[in-house]
Write a protein that binds this DNA or RNA. Structure first.
Lengths: 260, 260
DNA sequence: CAGTACTCTGTACGTCGTACAACGTAGACG
DNA sequence: CGTCTACGTTGTACGACGTACAGAGTACTG
């Protein structure tokens, strides 16, 4: 199915599931259900945390909760909706510390950090597109909380939404880069350093450094600075500083910090 | 295979392919090859442009170039390496207009626009992680060109690389959002507006707007501002302005533009 | 006590990437 | 000139995936 997109199922059914409305899995007639939506979703989250969304199969979820594969389809309409439920569930469980009293920079930094931690715990989230987000209690709580970090900055509501989207988009992009760096290491038995080391001599044979002088110079400098490999942590720190400086210009008043 | 990552094959073989080094598909003995790597790569790009990387199968490529599926494996070690070749090929074909003389803001805006156009023509690129990029002539030319936009800004080489990575990461993230928005529309027979319209009354039943006052207010305002739907163009414009303002703080001297 | 609405199961279909063995071809060598 | 051999190409096969469908069993409703 890949290209995981939330919000692809029937809205009514999906919303009812997200808010755990009764009325779909609890008729009087027939045998009682042996499981619950929550059990299924929890098992799926655990599996996805280690195997990713592609490694997560309906068969593996069924095995984890000890039913036949097709029994899952009485709890959840399909894999797409299951992913919606997983996403809203982890949103709901996010830590939401009070963010008042600090500077807006530290408030937004905290929001970014919390989201970064979420991607760290649940890397599969980075693969879910939320063009149509799961409109469940988790997303609502998360949205409400994160918006509150923008209080008192003199931004209008539309700008607040834009700014939050911008911040979260950055964190997701940084997380994706970090995750795929990690994934490359894991399934190639070659570290990034080894990979670059393996490529360097071969590349030297075909690569004419007079044809690409800037690339050769900058690439070498960047490679030396963080050990011949893309460094996700550094990219996140650099990027977050830029994001905050960019928002500072929007917010006004505050001075942008230079530095790296 | 999903979770497309470049640079996952044998470095020597992949590099030889990227630079089209002779020595792999041209021994004297036996029948001549009926195709070329380029023909295969071109066919694959054409298919991926309309069907995406998941819709691109070795079988469909083979059909397009009129050979059996397995014949492809004499040109290319597997799908992963094929994607590497596709990526480097489209990089190589990018337009590279001279960027001198203008302000750095318009130079970086041009880089961003060119990459945005690339994602628009080849949406599948947004699905490829480049933690280990295809070290071919296309990437080299692109990197060389894009670095040149940072000339004369007083940044050191490491900062230039960081800044470019930051800019490109933003464009990719914005492109992903735009692409998945488009994809949602395409395969659900429901426009974003219709989707939100379908959800709104149902959501009203379960959603307690006193529990999430800020979310209700801001969500309503944002929805009204761009028609109840996520608006990728607006997010890109807003984000790019922020990215440039953020880099302005790093570069110094120039004044950041406020405004939306 | 029959009827019925439900849960759960196993089988089956069409998709994918690619391993493998068989077949045919054309240059290299005696 | 004939034979050998390396290689291109082909078809078949395997195990994965999501899920449609038919059947079996269960427990409440009338």
């Amino acid at each position: 199915m890949p290209a995981y997109r939330s919000g692809s199922g029937d809205p009514a059914r999906t919303l009812a599931l997200l808010w755990r409305e009764p009325g779909f899995g609890q008729s009087a007639r027939g045998p009682k259900q042996g499981l619950s939506v929550d059990r299924v979703v929890d098992a799926a989250i655990t599996l996805a945390d280690t195997a990713g969304l592609d490694g997560l199969s309906m068969r593996s979820v069924a095995r984890a909760v000890d039913v036949s594969t097709m029994a899952l389809y009485t709890y959840v309409p399909g894999k797409a909706e299951l992913v919606d439920l997983m996403l809203d569930a982890v949103y709901l469980r996010m830590e939401r510390l009070p963010v008042d009293r600090q500077s807006w920079r530290s408030r937004l930094t905290a929001i970014a950090e919390q989201n970064r931690a979420l991607f760290d715990m649940h890397p599969w989230i980075a693969d879910v597109s939320t063009a149509r987000p799961p409109l469940g209690p988790g997303l609502m709580a998360k949205y409400e909380y994160e918006l509150s970090a923008f209080n008192g900055l003199g931004l209008d509501d539309v700008a607040i939404d834009d700014a939050l989207t911008y911040l979260l988009t950055f964190v997701q992009a940084a997380a994706r880069a970090a995750i795929s760096t990690r994934a490359s290491q894991l399934d190639s038995t070659m570290s990034d350093e080894q990979w670059w080391a393996a490529n360097a001599p071969l590349l030297a044979r075909v690569f004419d450094s007079t044809a690409y002088p800037t690339a050769a110079r900058v690439g070498t400098a960047a490679g030396a600075a963080h050990g011949s490999a893309y460094h996700p942590d550094h990219a996140y720190q650099f990027g977050l500083a830029r994001v905050l400086d960019g928002l500072a210009a929007l917010i006004g008043g505050q001075q942008a910090s230079a530095g790296r």
